[in-house]
């Protein structure tokens, strides 16, 4: 109950999102609490990834994408006119559906963010930060002898953890994960889930997933999207055992989607 009383990290009020003429999100209202895992679930094309990409303005890259409504991070307007997208994305990191390590060495992949943001002043600090990030991402043991080898040479699961390490090296406040396990096998998935749970200590985490067991396992709160509408949102336990909405129930019991 103590958690519920703290201010939410991210607040969304009446958020609409359009791709050209097509509306992808309808009046979404959602609070995302600090240092928790919030899962966004729903069938394909329901707008959950779109919503996620609104949170660090990755939608800006897409031609003709327009967001209206109020989105706040720590009570600051994310889409405000004086917001620097670069700073915002340093605070709100992202892990993508397909592992996308840069075509550089493992070390350089992790060092990329700290370098561009000037987080370290010398090589020693950078080494430490890289090691810390890889350790946090549970990858250090597997790669510490081959930090100079290309990141693209790792397995899919290792690549995804490298991307997580790369994201946390910037010390973001929020990490957005867009179906981070959809390209991975069950063992790699289990590792990422475990990692997500551990990251809760330091980061606020929003994860989009198609896998309902995954949502149930890793998240504290769950939001169910359908056709661009946020249908229901609440504590994960409640959503999965006693959903308030018929559509949520149909979806989590596998009747559609």
């Amino acid at each position: 109950m103590a958690l519920a009383s703290t201010l939410p990290k991210i607040v969304a009020r009446d958020v609409d999102c359009f791709y050209g003429d097509k509306q992808a999100l309808f009046c979404v209202n959602l609070d995302i609490s600090e240092k928790q895992v919030t899962a966004l679930i729903g069938p394909s094309g329901c707008g959950k990834s779109t919503f996620l990409r609104c949170l660090n303005r990755m939608n800006d890259v897409i031609d003709g994408c327009r967001v209206t409504g109020k989105l706040e991070l720590d009570a600051e307007d994310i889409y405000g006119p004086d917001v620097d997208v670069v700073k915002l994305r340093a605070r709100v990191g992202m892990v993508f559906q397909k592992p996308n390590p840069f075509p550089k060495s493992i070390y350089e992949n992790v060092a990329y963010g700290p370098r561009i943001h000037g987080l370290v002043s010398n090589r020693g600090e950078l080494d430490e930060l890289v090691e810390w990030s890889l350790e946090k991402a549970g990858l250090l043991g597997e790669v510490k002898d081959r930090l100079q080898e290309p990141g693209t040479g790792l397995s899919g699961g290792q690549q995804q953890r490298l991307c997580i390490a790369r994201a946390i090296a910037v010390s973001p406040e929020v990490i957005l994960m867009d179906e981070p396990c959809s390209a991975l096998d069950p063992i790699a998935t289990a590792k990422i889930e475990e990692l997500t749970d551990e990251l809760r200590e330091n980061f606020t985490n929003v994860i989009v997933t198609h896998n309902m067991q995954q949502a149930a396992r890793v998240s504290q709160r769950t939001a169910f999207f359908h056709l661009g509408i946020l249908v229901e949102e609440g504590e994960t336990g409640k959503i999965f055992t006693n959903p308030g909405n018929e559509r949520t129930q149909d979806y989590i019991t596998g009747r559609f989607g």
Binding site: N56, M58, V61, V86, K87, L88, R89, A90, R91, G93, M94, F96, K98, N100, P101, F102, P103, Y112, G113, I116, H117, C163, R166, A167, V170
Partner: peptide, 12 residues
């Protein structure tokens, strides 16, 4: 995906 990755880390 490379561009998204870089932008997602806060690159200009």
């Amino acid at each position: 995906a490379m561009r998204d990755g870089a932008l997602g880390l806060g690159s200009t």
